[in-house]
Design a protein around this nucleic acid. Structure first.
Length: 566
RNA sequence: CGGAGAGUAGCGCAGAUGGUAGCGCGCAUCGUUCGGGACGAUGAGGCCCCGGGUUCGAGUCCCGGCUCUCCGACCA
């Protein structure tokens, strides 16, 4: 293709976005921002997206069959699963109103994922055990009304995703397929050029599943997720679920007499530690929650840590936790919010201690008295030694994996894929059962598997660029060759272009009448792997340069073609 | 959803204290250039985000919207 036929162009004096992928892809003419979180894919960008999706499609065809579902759904489908209310990023239309010319009063959903559509489709055609297992997938735009779209293609309101759904007669079969899907995903990311930096991490299944979900995460400084890797155990956790062991304290102080000290208006462990002139680790953060069952519980972590409510829920054994209201705090502790401690709480308030609170001598905690803090508190003297210490803090750098004691490697990553064992969550909602060999109705098990193809494109740019522009891995590059012709070599360029095309090589020919410098800087910005220059200097040969390198060499056109084809 | 900033030519921006809009890039024409963002000359291009208000007069001041960007919260 000739550059002049793209009808888009680079804009090197354009605005720098905060994210590298949005800046480079916009300046180089791959995408155009319509609004926050929504982008048009221009001719160059579409070519890259198509290549990414072709790789995904090729691997998915091995484990499923492709279809495409409607993006629009009636809200009734989403009411069946209850997700109309629980998915807060769901895009919903409003019904006809006085300001609208719509005759229909229907309300619609723009699907954020398509369990609500695929489950009835699967059900219609597959109700015998003989039909199982099977999987459908599609690649299509998804809509999520993110509160804040950001980071270019990494977090959009409209984005493209490959979503695959598998159906099984048993949890065992689902698990077996799930492992196959992991293998297929690993191959996809290898082929996309992200293999070396992509790991599988355990993450929260959210509303989808009580089990862990599995995320495919690519190391990336601008990624939104923080991962904790325990290499000795070959396991990686998303920060949201990482079990953690705080660095052990070796305290040799002599126990001192407990006392209450005034600290009017001092709230928060940092300020408190400074005020009391003690290390933050000696302070204790005590938070009161109300459980789904209506009980009030107290959770204590050592200063410097945050409470991870998901982890705490599992420890407490409840389905939801809500921060206790100011009134409840006052009723239970007798003090205003900010002075809750673990001493002298009413017996009906169960206290949970995080393991980070152990091995401390003379620690601090709230006095359950407004404006007062207790210091020189010791287990076994001022309050009984807890029967058990738990782990419900949010892991932080320096913490260890409890199973092995290995200090985690902590790094940022971007989520490029996510797979969930849904089990019967959706099939139950739709009453989807199959008939087994004995003629009995049995529940259908289900899994779902996503890859954000537009996000992958953003991640690729985040990882593969330099100060001059993008450096596409060849398997996803919009073209294999960027042919640059300089003044006076028009005929030779045309001939080279024809030869490349005849050889079936995807070539972008910069046929514009602009100065050499403009063409070279644009070629670097666009990032096609191989640049071939034809000029008066090169005669009947072409100059070869790899985008990622500075060295050039002069080659016969046929030799260049042969090299590209291998 | 909390906090901060912004909206002026296709793009990026400047326009104290109110007086009828400018720069760079890009675009058009001509000429000179031509291996790492060339140069000169000429020219086209504006509902200054929208709606109210104050004023003789508003891009500028006031009120109300909308949109975008950034930080944080959230993120199946």
């Amino acid at each position: 293709m000739k550059y002049s036929q793209l009808h888009t162009k680079t804009n090197k004096s354009g605005k720098d976005f905060e994210s590298i992928n949005a800046t480079l892809l916009t300046k180089a003419g791959f995408i155009d921002q319509t609004m926050a979180g929504a982008y048009s894919f221009l001719p160059l960008g579409l070519r890259v997206l198509n290549k990414i999706e072709a790789i995904v499609r090729d691997e998915m065809d091995k484990i499923g069959v492709e279809l495409v579902m409607s993006s629009l759904a009636p809200k009734s489908l989403w009411e069946i699963t209850g997700r109309l209310e629980t998915v807060d990023v769901l895009m919903k239309t409003v019904g006809a109103n006085q300001a609208s010319q719509l005759k229909s009063n229907n309300e619609y959903v723009l699907n954020s994922t398509q369990e609500e559509l695929i489950t009835p489709i699967a059900q219609r055609f597959n109700t015998s055990y003989k039909d199982f297992p099977f999987a459908f997938y599609q690649i299509q735009a998804k809509f999520r009304n993110e509160a804040r779209a950001k980071s270019g293609l990494l977090r959009g309101r409209e984005f493209r995703m490959k979503d695959l759904y598998s159906f099984h007669t048993s949890e065992t079969d689902l698990k077996a397929y799930y492992e196959q899907a992991k293998v297929a995903y690993t191959r996809v990311f290898e082929r996309l050029g992200l293999g070396a930096d992509t790991v599988m991490a355990l993450a929260s299944g959210g509303d989808f599943t009580k089990d862990y979900s599995h995320e495919f995460q690519t190391r990336c400084e601008t990624g939104e997720d923080i991962l904790f890797a325990a290499h000795s155990a070959n396991i990686v956790f998303n920060k949201e679920v990482a079990p953690s062991q705080a660095p052990r304290l070796t305290d040799t102080q002599e126990p001192r007499e407990m006392e209450e000290v005034e600290g009017t208006g001092i709230i928060g462990v940092e300020a408190l530690a400074e005020y009391l002139k003690i290390p933050v680790e000696k302070t204790t953060k005590t938070i009161l929650f109300e459980t789904a069952e209506g009980n009030v519980i107290a959770a204590a972590v050592r200063g410097g840590y945050d409470i991870n409510e998901e982890k705490l829920k599992k420890v407490v054994g409840t389905t939801s936790l809500q921060l206790a209201s100011a009134e409840t705090v006052k009723r239970v502790t007798g003090a205003e919010v900010g002075y809750a401690g673990v001493l002298n709480l009413p017996s009906e308030v169960k206290v949970f201690f995080d393991e980070s609170t152990q091995n401390r001598i003379n620690f601090e905690c709230g006095a359950n008295r407004t404006n007062y803090h207790s210091i020189n508190v010791n287990f076994g003297r001022d309050l009984p030694m807890p029967e058990q210490f738990y782990d419900f803090k949010t892991a932080k750098e320096g913490d260890a994996y409890p199973e092995t004691g290995e200090v985690y490697e902590v790094f940022r990553a971007a989520e490029v894929g996510n797979i969930f064992p849904l089990n019967t969550k959706f099939t139950k909602a739709f009453g989807y059962t199959f008939t087994d060999e004995q003629g009995q109705e049995q529940p259908v098990y289900m899994g779902c598997y996503g890859i954000g193809t537009t996000r992958v494109m953003g991640v690729l740019v985040e990882k593969y660029h330099d100060e001059r522009g993008i450096i596409w891995p060849s398997q996803v590059a919009p073209f294999a060759v960027h042919l640059v012709s300089l003044k006076g070599a028009e005929a030779a360029a045309q001939q080279t272009y024809d030869q490349l095309q005849a050889a079936g090589i995807e070539v972008l020919w910069d046929d514009r009448d602009v100065s050499p410098g403009v063409k070279f800087t644009d070629a670097d910005l666009i990032g096609i792997p191989v640049r071939l220059v034809v000029s008066m200097k090169t005669g009947d040969k072409v100059e070869w340069k790899n985008r990622a390198e500075t060295a050039t060499e002069l080659l016969e056109v046929s030799a260049a073609i042969a090299r590209i084809q291998t």
